[in-house]
Computed example of a mutant assay.
Amino acid sequence: MSDRRSESPAVSRIPPGTQADIDAHQGWALVCHDPAGGPDVSPGRGGAPLDLLFVHGMAAGGWIWPAAWLDGFTRQGHRCWTLTLPGRAGGRSVTRDPSVLERAIGHALNTGDLDGASAMLVRALPGASLFDGPTLDDFADAVQQAMARIGHPVVVVGHSLGGAVAQLLLRRGVAQAGTVLLASVPPYGTWRASAEMAVTNPALWHALSQFALHGAARADMALMRRALFPNGISDRDFEALMAGMHDESLAATVRTAGLPPFAPLPGPRGDVLVVGGGADLLVPPADAWMTAAYYGGAPLMVPRAGHMIMHDPHADAAVTGILRWCAARAGRGARAA
């Protein structure tokens, strides 16, 4: 696939130049990637290639989707949208951004506002995001607002944590052209996979726990690199991905354990496609199969792919499977019309 893509201006609630502000962290950002090939038809028309809205996983943003991955869809006529979910109100924790201590002291000295300085420090404590959010519901709200901005039904492609958000939209009954769960949190939560990892791979379980609580500053990133990218990734690409990672809200990630429920009731759903990686250590193949069974089908398995399927050398197999599924969905829509 080519590394070039057509990218339209961002449609965003984040004002330009304010990415470092706390208020901006509470916004979401949406970028449109226009079709670069395929049939010349208008979006939303029966039989036309469906629009795809990509929702990222934990600690990431819309930038996580590689150009080659998106090109696989835009060159077949699909308009793609990449969404960055809102961040936490307190910004980064002190383990990821030690300068917060200097800012709090400076605020106290310059303004005499000791309460405000204390609040800054409290918000920066590891684990504070369990209380200041955003929550999984906040993420789902952001996706709904983005879908309203797009203006017509889209296929929501949710990766990992983004898959939990996509399932919460299904639980809410939000109209979609379809849902693709890509290495997704299972509908019953992460408890089974987490318990398995704690027994069979305690070092990785500890590294992921440290990453969730402290970010990359305290986690064994070499171990996580091997787990997330079992087929390898270049130093340059890995460093670029890690540079973009941010502190994730524990209020959202804790709920992905399964309580309270975030998924719809089990039952056959032709509008859900489950895609799993055969070498995924975070969402093992067993969970991909159980997720597909929950929705009354079988998963599309990419045998040697890891958790970051879109960055995997075998990503083309996933793209091809999703394209075929989308074509079938669009064809059914055209016949119904």
Rank of each mutant, 00 (worst) to 15 (best):
G106R: 09
F131E: 04
R304K: 07
A222R: 13
G278I: 05
V275Y: 04
H56I: 05
L265A: 14
L121Y: 13
P86L: 12
A219T: 12
A251V: 02
G276V: 02
R123W: 04
A286M: 11
G296P: 02
I22K: 01
R149Y: 06
W65L: 11
Y188C: 00
G112T: 06
P15Q: 12
A104T: 11
A330W: 08
L273F: 10
P303N: 08
V100E: 00
G116Q: 12
V319C: 05
R269T: 00
G44I: 09
G27D: 09
Y294G: 04
G267L: 01
R103V: 05
R45G: 04
I150R: 10
I105M: 14
G17H: 07
D237Y: 02
A148R: 13
A212F: 09
T256P: 06
R103H: 15
A279F: 08
A257N: 14
G37T: 07
C80S: 15
L53D: 09
V55K: 04
G77R: 11
P187A: 06
L181N: 06
V165H: 08
A227T: 14
S12H: 10
V254W: 12
V122H: 08
V272W: 02
M224N: 13
N231R: 14
T95M: 13
G47C: 14
P230E: 06
G38I: 02
A29N: 03
V11N: 02
A164Q: 08
E239N: 07
V31F: 01
A337I: 07
T320Y: 01
N110D: 14
R324I: 00
D287M: 10
L125D: 03
G173D: 03
G244R: 13
T135P: 05
R103Q: 14
A108T: 09
R324T: 07
G62E: 13
H246L: 06
D113C: 13
R5G: 02
Y295L: 02
G116M: 13
L213D: 00
D97E: 14
L170H: 02
A59S: 15
S194E: 15
A336D: 14
P303Q: 06
A288S: 15
P43D: 09
I233D: 01
